[in-house]
Nucleic acid binder design. Sequence first.
DNA 1: TATTGTTATACTCTATAACTATA
DNA 2: TATAGTTATAGAGTATAACAATA
Lengths: 163, 163
Amino acid sequence: MPPRLRPTKAHVARPTIAADLTEEIDVSFLRSQVGYNARRAALHIIGVFMGRMQEYELKVVEFSVLSLLAHNPGLTSRHVCATLSIMPPNLVGLVASLEKRGLLERRPHPSDGRAMGLHLTPAGLALAQESEQAVAQLEIDATAKLSASERKTLIRLLQKVYD
Amino acid sequence: MPPRLRPTKAHVARPTIAADLTEEIDVSFLRSQVGYNARRAALHIIGVFMGRMQEYELKVVEFSVLSLLAHNPGLTSRHVCATLSIMPPNLVGLVASLEKRGLLERRPHPSDGRAMGLHLTPAGLALAQESEQAVAQLEIDATAKLSASERKTLIRLLQKVYD
DNA sequence: TATTGTTATACTCTATAACTATA
DNA sequence: TATAGTTATAGAGTATAACAATA
């Protein structure tokens, strides 16, 4: 082992406490857990998402609803809630907001008087398609350290966790 | 293709709208994105976490702080915030709560009068060790569909995303 | 002048209870 | 009796601005 330089005031720039000791902190236990890593990775990607999707004025869940309806016209609120694990009361305001923006319409369900079918307007469908393109690109960028093959493996393993 | 039974009221139990059509909904776009799957997987594991960790009265972030301090005694608030991506104002109440429970102590930093070193008490260290065991087991259970090898691969790929 | 820790506060997200109208 | 949608509200979780003490 080579002799270390003496850590005198002359040598080091007197780092403040938190200097770069961050890297020396032992996070090995947390990093050995799937939950911790999945949460960190999700928050990382969501951070990139929020930055780029401001252009479309879409938050994460709003985008999910829009994309889901683009591929499944006429879904009811209950379907959307069950598919995306949203609590019904929390979907109400979200749908109202999208409706107010002219992106979707609530039509009475043909055979069930209680239900409302959710349909994207032409503007909503256009936004869904545009924003899906943006999300696909943003995801590639936010996970740039992954090869296409690794990305595919990662998705498969994540689905195995929650499916 | 075999002839289908007529879907008359006599045959089917007249399912309500949302019956089990949930499985026929097209979620292929969302499921092809890393962010969507990482968020779903993280929420799944956190759900299991919250259920089982009630016994220790520890929430996700509280556990992370406790575990981090168990392995790194004397860390400052700033270190904890930087390591776990917590905003300093949000750590204050959390630390105060753990201190009030007798799990940690805030000691003046030896060389920096502004900082406080965070140290677990014996009770805090004991709880950290117990709860780490519980978390390790809960993680195995919450990701039971994964083999040990797959779990390892998943963690490696997730870290590649956010590191 | 910059940093640590703190207060106060606001904003977002999520969860619960209760109601209505329809089935 | 159960379900779809809604309202109102409460609780977490997270974010910003501003301040005092210290570096």
